[in-house]
Design a protein around this nucleic acid. Sequence first.
DNA 1: TTGCTGACGGCAT
DNA 2: CATGCCGCCAGCA
Length: 122
Amino acid sequence: MATRAAAGSALAARIGALVRKIPRGRVATYGQIAALAGAPRHARFVGAVLRRLPEGSPAPWHRVLGAGGRLSLARFAPHAAQTQRLRLEREGVRVVGRGRVDLARYGWRGPAARRGPSARTK
DNA sequence: TTGCTGACGGCAT
DNA sequence: CATGCCGCCAGCA
């Protein structure tokens, strides 16, 4: 039991669940999602999963960014990247420069993270 | 079964 | 700071 394929499927499901848990107005990175899913070196796999998501998927894929809070998506799908940026700003996430987000401010801390008393607004 | 590709990550140029 | 190359790992032909 526990074949590789099954593991991959379970991992994919876990990734999807994590992405849905990203609070509105916050963002996470591919590597972070992978790590939270229990697969530290599977950032690419996260991307593969999100790419396979149907259009009507409730998963906020736009909240998943590349390392350092960058919109790495732009190089492969400029149109989608624009949608992503639009959605983010619409949620209150400020995208600066060519497509960068301040993770220190909008970065998600994880599934257990709650809006603590600490005001991160500097 | 083998090989190539890829919503990435990190370092070098 | 922007661009490029290599490395990691699972999915797919």
